[in-house]
């Protein structure tokens, strides 16, 4: 990887049980999760996970329930201590941090959005959004002024003096998002942030997140069990099963080259036309016209393709340079593979 990663996770293990250190070597030697539970009554949470998360990117960590994804994200700000391994943020080892340094990391460098929102029920929306700033030690006045800005940014003007219980789930999670963004932390940890919301609201929240990210360029770690969500949001996706990463890559990498049958099964029902982009299919010569950018989704390119001469289009990279051509047949095959 060319960039220095913002967050570097190396050989991370987490074993739950009475004496995790004792069984660590067995796990390292390859004892499976089920065997570990049967033989030693320990639960394998995270199994040798290594992920580099570049700055300003949106890293999705996907897995079904019990795959260890929520455990993994809690290691980044050390809400959970690992059994073994290394977590480095901005070049600093999180595991060696003192209590005070760790608190500062949580106050200033990371912020978090939770599946169940985690709002303070006894405080109004304004005080909830200001919470991180107040914990940082900002004056009430300053914290509330910044909180008001963020409440407006997530579209909740007028709700400052409501209590969380008076808002719908989607609105509560906007509060959660505003609270996390208000602290101005570089790293945003989102633990199944949209999973509790109904599908329409979820799509809307994804839109809000992408919109904000275009401008804020945070380093986002997003946990989800929903593949469509993962493919829509992630610059980079890591798929987790039984605590281990089984594939890492961009949405297209995963859809075009699934690592194993498990992932193949996973991606069976997704809308490939909305994941694959022209750039991945370039083959053969390019016609003069029409020219489409390489990040055009196949679903959007089909119309142009079908009307182009010889049903072929030229594909240009971000700089506008033509890198090759794609024909309609290839595109349709890719969608229906």
């Amino acid at each position: 990887m060319s960039q220095t990663p913002k967050i570097k996770i190396r050989n991370l293990y987490k074993i739950f049980g009475p004496a995790p250190e004792k069984v660590l070597d067995q796990v390292r030697a390859g004892l499976s999760k089920d065997a570990l539970l049967a033989q030693t009554n320990h639960v394998l949470g995270i199994n040798n996970v290594s992920i580099d998360i570049p700055p300003h990117g949106l890293q999705v960590i996907m897995g079904l329930s019990g795959s260890g994804k929520s455990t993994l994200i809690r290691h980044i700000n050390r809400l959970i201590d690992p059994t073994a391994g290394e977590i480095v943020i901005d070049g600093e080892d999180v595991l060696r941090m003192s209590e005070t340094r760790l608190r500062d990391l949580r106050r200033f460098t990371t912020s978090m959005v939770f599946q169940k929102f985690g709002l303070l029920p006894h405080r109004k929306i304004l005080q909830n959004v200001a919470y991180g700033l107040l914990v940082q030690g900002k004056s009430t006045q300053e914290a509330e002024a910044r909180a008001r800005e963020w409440i407006a940014r997530v579209g909740l003007d007028g709700y400052e003096n409501h209590y969380p219980a008076q808002l719908s789930g989607g609105m509560q999670q906007r509060v959660g998002l505003a609270r996390a963004l208000a602290t101005d932390a570089d790293i945003l940890l989102m633990d199944e942030a949209f999973s509790a919301l109904d599908p329409l609201i979820r799509t809307e929240m994804q839109g809000i997140l992408l919109e904000l990210q275009k401008e804020l360029h945070k380093t986002i770690v997003f946990i989800t069990h929903d593949l469509d969500e993962a493919l829509r949001l992630g610059d980079n996706i890591a798929i987790l099963r039984d605590g281990a990463v089984i594939q890492q890559g961009s949405a297209q990498d995963i859809v075009l080259a699934p690592a194993d049958a498990y992932i193949r099964d996973f991606i069976k029902d997704i809308n490939r036309g909305r994941v694959l982009r022209l750039g991945a299919l370039v083959k053969g010569p390019a016609p003069e016209a029409p020219v489409l950018p390489d990040d055009t989704m196949l679903a959007d390119a089909l119309m142009t393709l079908s009307e182009a001469p010889q049903q072929r289009v030229a594909v240009a990279d971000k700089a506008g340079k033509v890198i090759g051509g794609v024909d309609l047949k290839t595109a349709i095959r890719a969608i229906h593979a």
Partner: peptide, 12 residues
């Protein structure tokens, strides 16, 4: 969950 959120924001 609420307590965890407070911890995650660095509350002492």
């Amino acid at each position: 969950d609420v307590l965890e959120a407070a911890t995650a924001f660095g509350a002492s």
